[in-house]
Design a protein around this nucleic acid. Structure first.
Lengths: 343, 343
DNA sequence: TCAGCACTTGTAAACGTTTCCAAACCGCCG
DNA sequence: CGGCGGTTTGGAAACGTTTACAAGTGCTGA
């Protein structure tokens, strides 16, 4: 039954015409009406569908673009993914998502294996980078766009954002609502987001605050956030924080749990901010005040860069920067003050 | 610089040996040590990496498996994805995730286009099915495993679960804690999960309850859940529900928001249950009582079926069923009664 | 010494498609 | 009626790889 699929050659024989004509009839250029009908009939009878590998080999195109992310469970990527799909699908590209794992090495390997013919382009958002990864990207035979870190010096197209500045905005907001003992909950410092957000928090410390304290989570996940926040809050009540800046929404949610475990309220006792403005943060209760890094916009920009590069791989690398924007919601400002739904 | 990639032929010339030997040296079987060294050196100098399309065409294998889901934003898929990856990666497969869109037609088109050579196998979790989709799956030239609906009658391998029974468990649990006016918040009835969960709720209605009421959301999302729950709860206070069974976790979260908008508490005034036992439900506050449908287990089972079929496509279709299990958390039982963290 | 064997290498075909090029055909105008 | 432009068709090459098969090498054991 499933035996073996029909090939173009078989369709040609069945239709009694040449291979070339068959291809033209199905692909659609320069074939007579009669020919098209005849070939399509034969194709239908045989249940023919074009073989992608044969076609790709000949055309040197796969019509596939990969979006590679460190952790497919992080909701920040779903907005990006949707945006990328929206831009690329109308151009005839299929978008596939891949998990890179969180090390630079695993990412480099993925870049290498992917760019060797499975996709026409690659949009990658690496958590960690090293020289090997950069080299792999530079020598990739297909266009690669990096989301997350400016790469202009390396001749790599990238879409970056000012997450350091975003942390600054969060701190300023907390000052603005009267918080003074502001703690920082960051993810691993050897990651791209971890290091830049750290820079942002350090720069924001300009002495008005009574104290700053911070803790590094093992990971950008809720679980790691919960654990790190417990440590951060366990430093004794006399020095209790009244605000907490988390390096992303998942950490923030973990932090909120930790605050509540102590019988404290959010935002009453401790105000909490996140970053990335993810859907989970928007629907969480309290809805999360979060620094948007424009996931949708970044995804869109990356997809557009990709299209340009696909057109001409040798054009100079381009950089796009998307500014941060604070979304104030219930986790820093009491419910009544903020519009319903937290949108 | 990027000009054009090196081919195996060029490596062969550079190494001064035949094409066949080059291939063997790099692939690794039946080549002398000297030959391997020589070829690898040449390959390194040229920055060679094997071209996937050429290789796939010849070998008739791509070492790729696709996992196609309706909505990549639904967290129920991330557990499955992880499990699939865990089973398939050690076997040398790359797993790619694709969005099918939520119609049966778009899913059918994806199945067709994918199975025509880009992947060695396909695991698909369709939201809606129709005859066209089923036909497309049956005639696919690569193994296809369906997650979500038993397909034994159609000769299609599938991994199913008893979500109807799961709804029953949720209702029984709510009875058990004294709730009597239990409402049902379902997703679209023309979807596979929507219809079976409806069946489950209808079957669970055995007269002890004072009243059952229900509402259909447009979609299995938080937003749609919020809107539908508002309608459901707006029927006037004299007939206020004291419990709400939602057809998945996202709807449940929307429902909790709706309940709170009315100034009511969860679980005090209205107990809420979800389904799928997603991470977002586990970290939500209150943590969500949810019917686990064994996402991880189902993903694993699907991946294993896929491997078997990849071995021999003509073997008979198999079915696996994974039973539901209720996870009781804070959204139905006050916090103190349930262990901390909701795990 | 030579048949036999194991091991290594090379030649060539094949995978399924698209597309360049040339040939064939048709109708029309001079 | 012959030539010519335009349209349609077919032959054949090419994309980059793996692998069946044959051929070559060197070694062992009779």
């Amino acid at each position: 039954m499933t035996s073996t699929r029909a090939t173009l050659m078989q369709v040609a024989e069945r239709a009694g015409v040449s291979l070339a004509s068959t291809s033209r009839a199905l692909h659609g250029s320069g074939a007579s009406k009669a020919m098209v009908e005849r070939v399509e009939a034969a194709a239908a009878e045989l249940g023919y569908s074009v073989d992608a590998t044969g076609r790709s080999l000949r055309m040197k195109r796969t019509f596939q673009v990969a979006f590679a992310v460190a952790d497919i469970g992080n909701p920040v990527y779903v907005d990006m993914m949707r945006a990328i799909h929206e831009v690329l699908a109308p151009q005839g590209y299929r978008v596939v998502v891949m998990s890179t794992g969180d090390t630079a090495t695993s990412t480099a390997e993925l870049v290498r294996s992917l760019s060797s013919g499975f996709v026409d382009g690659l949009i990658v958002s690496p958590l960690r980078t090293d020289d090997r990864l950069i080299a792999e990207i530079q020598r990739a035979p297909v266009p690669v766009v990096v989301i997350g870190r400016a790469m202009d010096d390396r001749g790599i197209s990238s879409v970056s954002t000012d997450s350091a500045g975003g942390i600054g905005e969060a701190v300023r907001h907390l000052y603005g609502i009267g918080r003074r003992r502001i703690g920082f909950l960051n993810g691993p410092l050897d990651t791209t987001p971890g290091s830049s957000r750290q820079r942002g928090f350090d720069a924001a410390d300009h002495g008005e605050a009574e104290r700053f304290d911070q803790e590094i989570a093992d990971d950008f996940t809720v679980k790691a956030g919960l654990e790190a926040a417990r440590r951060l809050l366990a430093r004794g009540p006399e020095q209790q924080l009244d605000a907490l800046v988390a390096a992303n929404d998942l950490l923030a949610i973990g932090a909120i749990r930790a605050v509540r475990e102590l019988g404290l309220s959010v935002p009453g006792d401790v105000a909490v901010t996140g970053m990335d403005d993810t859907e989970i943060g928007r629907v969480f209760q309290p809805s999360l005040t979060s620094v948007s890094l424009g996931s949708t916009e970044r995804g869109r920009a990356a997809a557009r860069l990709m299209l340009q590069l696909a057109d001409d791989l040798d054009q100079p690398a381009q950089q796009v920067n998307v500014g941060p924007a604070l979304r104030v919601r219930e986790s820093t400002v009491p419910e009544s003050t903020v519009e319903r739904g937290g949108e």
